[in-house]
């Protein structure tokens, strides 16, 4: 599916993501990395479970807020091939846990803190994702 180039809305939305990261750091001293927040629920120490669940609840419920304000559902199109969905989900869950972060943790918060680890991680997952898309769309 072709999508429109939306520099302004994307920049604005990105700004909101940044604002959320600042609120979480200023309020709780926490990194707004979704895989990290989610992963922290699967440990023995559950002392931080409440704020983690609250953040994830906000994330899951946010489209309702969007709908309330704009009156429409977000654009959305994804494959319905169960094989690819399961494979992708397993890889994303496994990879972000081993690599300690995803697009938000490394890509936003890490880069904002000028972390060398995060810069390397972002470069690696961007290239590996681009190669994957190239193979999926232009080779297979």
């Amino acid at each position: 599916m072709l999508t429109d180039f939306t520099p302004w809305m994307s920049f604005l939305g990105g700004g909101l993501i940044g604002l959320s990261a600042v609120i979480l750091m200023g309020g709780l001293g926490r990194i707004a990395g979704v895989s990290g927040i989610l992963g922290g629920l699967f440990t023995v120490d559950l002392s931080g479970a409440l704020w983690r669940l609250a953040f994830l609840a906000g994330l899951v419920l946010s489209p309702f807020l969007y709908r309330k304000v704009t009156g429409e559902l977000p654009d959305f199109a994804v494959t319905n091939d169960v094989f690819y969905l399961v494979a992708a989900g397993l890889l994303v869950g496994f990879g972000t846990s081993i690599g300690s972060g995803c697009t938000s943790g490394h890509g936003v918060c890490g880069i904002a803190r000028l972390s060398k680890r995060s810069l390397v991680a972002v470069a690696v997952f961007m290239v590996s994702a681009m190669v994957t898309v190239f193979i999926m769309r232009h080779v297979i």
Binding site: V34, S35, L38, L56, L59, V60, L61, S62, P63, F64, L73, P74, F76, V78, T79, Y84, L85, A87, A88, G89, L90, L91, V92, G93, F94, G95, T96, S97, I98, G99, S100, C102, T103, S104, H106, R117, V120, A121, V122, V124, F125, M126, V127, S128, A129, M130, V131, T132, V133, M136
Partner: peptide
């Protein structure tokens, strides 16, 4: 671990276009 994890995550991300945040944000719709 950082390199391998990022590499594996990238493949999964590129397969269908979901990373953790957007996937969770879209479970309701």
């Amino acid at each position: 671990r950082l390199i391998l994890g990022a590499l594996i995550f990238g493949v999964g991300w590129g397969l269908v276009g979901f990373c953790p945040g957007p996937a969770l944000a879209s479970v309701t719709f």
